[in-house]
Design a protein around this nucleic acid. Structure first.
Length: 817
RNA sequence: GCCGAAGUGGCGGAACUGGCAGACGCGCACGACUCAAACUCGUGUUCCUUUGGAGUGUGGGUUCGAUUCCCACCUUCGGCACCA
C-alpha cells in the first residue's frame, strides 16, 4: 500500500535544491577515473525554452548520466550562444538594449534548464557575449591572422536584405538562395570583408577516418566541400598576349574545345573585347549584374551569352577559338572561365547550338556513327571509347586518357594537375551591432593592424544607435571608431564590423573547460584531461555550418599548438525534431507549439523526459501527441506505488520468483545496450515491461522478498538517467544515504537472464502450424523429433515423408513437405 | 537531375547478424468499481468472406523461410544543383 502519492512538483523542487547544495554535479578532474566529455549544442538565449531544447538536451543528459553511473568522470557543461541578431531585433522592436534583453533571457532560461533535471555543471557555464569570453574570440581572430588564415578582401558577397548583413556561403540555403536565419533571398554586394581560410583545410576536412560521425553528416560535408580533380590549362589570347586560365576535369577533351566562355565579371573581359562588340558586352554585363543570383543560377534557364570579338589559341592544336561571355560560367568557381567542349558537355552543347558555334567530336564510343549528327555525349572514364581528332592522342582509350594528357600538358608547360573545391572561404564580417568587435585598427600608414593582446577585448560600446542600415552601427559611434594606430600612434579608425556568431560557437567546447581562465582561451591542464569531446549531440541543421567551422577551428588550433587533436568531437549523434500534433514543424503561426513549462507543471519534468525519450526513435523524431504522454505518466506513478508498497508475499512460488528475476536481469541487459546506442525509446519500453512484471508479482504476491527487492532497486537504477528526480526520491525513501546518481550501473547475470524453456515455432512450408514448449538447450535432433510428433503437424503431413527439415536452434523448426 | 534518410495496425512505434510481424505505449470496445462521470483495475484489440486466408509503399527475384538481401518503380522528408 502506498503511504504517499507521487507529487512531482514537490520532489523535483526539493532535489534541485539538495543536489545544488551538495554539489552533486560538480565535474572536476579526477585522474583515477576514465573521463567522458559529453557535449550538447548550446542554445541561443531566445528567452523561452522550447520543447525542441528538451528534445535535444534531456536524452543527452540521460546518456551523460548513464556514462557517469558506468564509472566515467563525466563533464557535461552548458552555456549560451548569446550574440546574434534576435537580441538586436527584439531590442529594436521593444526599445531595450540587446545586452539587457539577452541577460534577462539567460536568467530565465537558466531556471528552465534547471527544471529539466540535467546534470549540467553550472560552474563551467560560458556565455559568448561576456567580455571575458569574447576577449578570446578576438584573440583567436588575431591568431588566425598570424597563421595566414584570416584575410581581408574585396568581393561580391551574399547579403541578406532583411538581416541587413553579409552572410557566409554556408548560411545561404536552398534553391532560392535564402538566408538561413530569416528565409529572405540574398542579394550580391561588393564589399571589403574579412574571411577565414577554411579552404586551406579542404583536403583534411574530407577525412573523417578518426571520428565516429553519422554517415549523413559526412556525406553532406563531403558534398559541401565538393572536391574535383582535373587540370589547369592556360590559353593565350590571339591578339594581346593575355593568359586565360581555366580549370577542367576533362583535359582529355582539349582538342574539342571550340570556344571559350568567361564569366561576365571576369577581369579580362575588357581586354579581349573588340570595339565593335563593346556595346553588346557592356549591356550583357550590366544585365547579369542586375539579375538576382537565383535567376542566374537556375540550371533550366535558356543559356545566353555575347561574343566579345576576341579570340584565344587552343594550346594543343593552335586553333583560333572565339571568346564569349555568358552567365552560366560563375566567377567564383575555378578561374571564372571555361574551355567549352560542346561535343561532350551538355551545357556547352546547348550554347553552341544556340549560337551556331563549332562542335568537334573528340571521343567516339562503339555505338555511334557520323550519321547520328550533332549530339553532346559525355564519356566517363569508366566507359569504352577512344579519343579521335586529338593529335597524337587519337586512338587511345578514354580510360586513363585524363592522366596521360595531363602529364603531357605539364611537360609542355601548358597546364598542370589541379584540384578544385566547391568550398569557399568563410566570410565572417557582419554589419550588425550585437557581436564581438573585430580587433583591427586601420592606419593610413600601416594598414590593418591587430589590436595588441593587452588591449583585448575591444569592448563593444553600449551607447550605440543600433538601427540596421546595412552598415555597422559602430561606424557612427565616434568614441569607438576613432583611436590611434598601435604601431605609430597616429590617428586611426577601428574596424566596425562585428564577427559572425558562428565564430563564438566554433570554440565554446574549449572555453567550458575553464570559463574564468585568463591566461589563454582555456586552461591547458583542464584541456589535457578532458579533451577532446567524446560525445557530441545536436541537430542535423548544423551539418554544413557549425560542424564545419568547429572542425576548421580545431585544425587551426592544432597548428597553433593549442591542442593535440585533429578533430573536436570524436563521436556525434544527431537527434531528430519534435513536430506538432499536426505532424508539421512547430511554429507560432501554425499554433501547434508545445510549451514545456506547461507540461512540467502538469506532469512533472520526469514524465516529460520519459515521454520525450519514449515516443520516437531519437534520431528520427516525430509528432508530439498530447494523449501519448499518459503512458509514461502512468508508468512513473506505478513505479512510485510499487517502490513504496509494503510487499508481503502470501506464499513463495519458485517459478514466479525465477520469472521475475529473469525479467529483471533481461531488462538490465536491454536497457544497458539501448542507452549505449541512444535507443532511449526501447529502453523506456523495457522498463515498462519490468513494471508490468512487478505489478503482476505484487498482485499474485508469490515471489520471494529478495526477488521483489531486487526488481524494485534495479528498476530505480535503470530509471535514474531517464527520470532523475523520482528515482532519487524513491531511492532515498528506501533508506539509502548516498545519491542514486552516484551508484554503479547494475550488471546482470546471464544465467539468471537465460530462459530455461522456450517456445519453438513449428512451420510447414514456412507457415506457422504449431508451437511447442521445449527445454532451452534442446538438441536439434530432439527439436526435430518433437516437432514431427506434434499432433497438429502429424495431421497436416498426413503420413507424407518431409522432404527437408530445417532447425534453427532456439527459434524454429521448418518442415518442407 | 544527383546524393542521403524513411514508408509496418485506428495512432506513435518494436523486431540483434534473414527465423513467431506488430514489443511497449496511446486510442478504442466490453466488464468491474461509482448514484454518475473521471480516475483506477480486468479482458480484448492487424485485416477478411475465420476448420481457413491475406498482410510490413508497389511489382519482380534469391531462399526451406524476407520488414530484413537483390533488381525495377512509387511516395514523403532533408541536402545539393549551370561547379566546368
Amino acid at each position: 500500500m502506498s503511504e504517499s502519492n507521487y507529487n512531482p512538483a514537490e520532489i523535483e523542487a526539493k532535489w534541485q535544491e539538495i543536489w545544488e547544495e551538495q554539489g552533486l554535479y560538480r565535474q572536476e578532474i579526477d585522474k583515477s577515473k576514465p573521463k567522458h566529455y559529453a557535449l550538447t549544442m548550446l542554445p541561443y538565449p531566445s528567452g523561452d525554452l522550447h520543447i525542441g531544447h528538451w528534445y535535444a538536451m534531456t536524452p543527452s543528459d540521460a546518456r551523460a548520466r548513464f556514462m557517469r553511473m558506468k564509472g566515467y568522470n563525466v563533464l557535461f557543461p552548458m552555456g549560451f550562444d548569446a550574440f546574434g541578431l534576435p537580441a538586436e531585433n527584439a531590442a529594436i522592436k521593444r526599445n531595450i538594449h540587446p545586452a539587457k534583453w539577452t541577460k534577462a533571457n539567460i536568467e530565465r532560461m537558466r531556471g528552465q534548464l534547471r527544471s529539466m533535471g540535467t546534470m549540467f555543471d553550472w560552474e563551467r557555464e560560458a556565455v559568448t557575449c561576456d567580455p571575458s569570453y569574447y576577449k578570446w574570440t578576438q584573440w583567436f581572430f588575431k591568431k588566425l591572422m598570424e597563421q595566414g588564415l584570416a584575410y581581408r578582401k574585396h568581393a561580391a558577397v551574399d547579403f541578406c536584405p532583411n538581416c541587413n548583413t553579409t552572410l557566409a556561403r554556408e548560411q545561404v540555403w536552398g534553391e532560392d538562395r535564402h538566408c538561413e536565419r530569416c528565409g529572405t533571398p540574398v542579394i550580391k554586394k561588393h564589399l571589403e570583408q574579412w574571411f577565414f581560410r577554411t579552404t586551406a583545410y579542404a583536403e583534411e576536412l574530407l577525412d573523417f577516418s578518426g571520428i565516429d560521425w553519422p554517415e549523413r553528416v559526412k556525406v553532406m560535408q563531403t558534398n559541401w566541400i565538393g572536391r574535383s580533380e582535373g587540370a589547369n590549362v592556360v590559353f593565350e589570347t590571339a591578339e594581346g598576349g593575355h593568359e586565360i586560365k581555366v580549370f577542367t576535369t576533362r583535359p582529355d577533351t582539349l582538342w574539342g574545345a571550340t570556344f571559350m566562355v568567361l564569366a561576365p565579371e571576369h577581369p579580362l573581359v575588357g581586354a579581349v573585347t573588340t570595339a565593335e562588340q563593346e556595346e553588346a558586352v557592356a549591356a550583357y554585363q550590366a544585365a547579369a549584374e542586375r539579375m538576382s543570383s537565383i535567376d542566374r543560377e537556375s540550371a533550366d534557364r535558356e543559356k545566353t551569352g555575347v561574343f566579345t570579338g576576341g579570340y584565344a589559341i587552343n594550346p594543343v592544336n593552335g586553333e583560333q577559338i572565339p571568346i564569349w561571355i555568358a552567365d552560366y560560367v560563375l566567377m567564383d568557381y575555378g578561374f571564372g572561365a571555361i574551355m567549352a567542349v560542346p561535343a561532350h558537355d551538355e551545357r556547352d552543347f546547348a550554347f553552341a547550338q544556340k549560337y551556331d558555334l563549332d562542335i568537334v567530336e573528340v571521343i567516339r564510343g562503339s555505338n555511334r556513327t557520323d550519321e547520328d549528327g550533332p549530339l553532346a555525349e559525355a564519356y566517363t572514364e569508366k566507359e569504352e571509347g577512344v579519343l579521335i581528332n586529338s593529335g597524337q592522342f587519337s586512338g587511345i582509350a578514354v580510360k586513363g586518357a585524363v592522366s596521360k594528357v595531363t602529364a603531357w600538358l605539364a611537360e609542355q608547360g601548358k597546364g598542370e594537375q589541379s584540384i578544385n573545391y566547391r568550398l569557399r572561404d568563410w566570410l565572417i564580417s557582419r554589419q550588425r551591432y550585437w557581436g564581438s568587435p573585430i580587433p583591427i585598427v586601420y592606419c593610413d600608414e600601416h594598414g590593418a593592424v591587430p589590436v595588441p593582446d593587452d588591449e583585448l577585448p575591444v569592448m563593444l560600446p553600449e551607447d550605440v544607435a543600433f538601427m540596421p542600415t546595412g552598415e555597422s552601427p559602430l561606424k557612427s559611434h565616434e568614441g569607438f571608431l576613432n583611436t590611434t594606430c598601435p604601431v605609430c600612434g597616429a590617428a586611426a579608425t577601428r574596424e566596425t564590423d562585428t564577427m559572425d556568431t558562428f565564430m563564438c560557437s566554433s570554440w565554446y567546447q574549449y572555453r567550458y573547460l575553464s570559463p574564468d581562465y585568463d591566461e589563454g582561451p582555456f586552461d591547458p591542464e583542464e584541456g589535457a584531461y578532458w579533451l577532446p569531446v567524446d560525445q557530441y549531440t545536436g541537430g542535423i541543421e548544423h551539418a554544413t555550418m557549425h560542424l564545419i567551422y568547429t572542425r576548421f577551428f580545431t585544425k587551426a588550433m592544432r597548428d597553433m599548438g593549442l591542442v593535440t587533436d585533429d578533430e573536436p568531437m570524436k563521436a556525434l549523434f544527431n537527434q531528430g525534431m519534435v513536430l506538432g500534433e499536426d505532424n508539421e514543424k512547430m511554429s507560432k503561426s501554425r499554433g501547434n507549439v508545445i510549451a514545456p513549462d506547461d507540461l512540467v507543471q502538469e506532469f512533472g519534468a520526469d514524465t516529460v523526459r520519459a515521454y520525450i525519450m519514449f515516443f520516437a526513435k531519437w534520431e528520427l523524431g516525430g509528432p508530439w501527441n498530447y494523449d501519448g504522454i499518459k503512458g509514461p505518466q502512468r508508468f512513473l506513478r506505478d513505479v512510485w506505488s510499487l517502490a513504496t508498497a509494503d510487499y508481503a508475499p502470501e506464499g513463495e512460488d519458485e517459478e514466479a520468483t525465477a520469472n521475475l528475476r529473469r525479467k529483471t536481469h533481461q531488462v538490465i541487459a536491454k536497457v544497458t545496450d539501448d542507452l549505449e546506442r541512444f535507443a532511449f525509446n526501447t529502453a523506456v519500453a523495457a522498463l515498462m515491461e519490468l513494471r508490468n512484471a512487478l505489478v503482476e508479482a505484487e498482485r499474485a504476491a508469490n515471489v520471494s522478498v529478495g526477488a521483489w527487492e531486487e526488481g524494485i532497486e534495479m528498476m530505480l537504477h535503470l530509471l535514474a538517467p531517464i527520470a532523475p528526480y523520482i528515482s532519487e526520491e524513491l531511492w532515498s525513501q528506501r533508506g539509502h544515504e548516498t545519491s542514486i546518481h552516484e551508484q554503479a550501473w547494475p550488471t546482470w547475470d546471464e544465467e539468471i537472464a537465460k530462459e530455461d524453456t522456450i517456445t519453438l515455432v513449428v512451420q510447414v512450408n514456412g507457415k506457422v502450424r504449431a508451437k511447442i514448449e521445449v527445454a532451452a538447450d534442446v538438441s536439434n535432433a530432439d527439436a526435430e523429433a518433437a516437432a514431427l510428433s506434434d499432433p497438429a503437424i502429424v495431421e497436416r503431413l498426413a503420413g507424407k515423408e518431409p522432404r527437408k527439415v530445417i532447425v534453427v536452434p532456439g527459434r524454429l523448426v521448418n518442415i518442407v513437405a
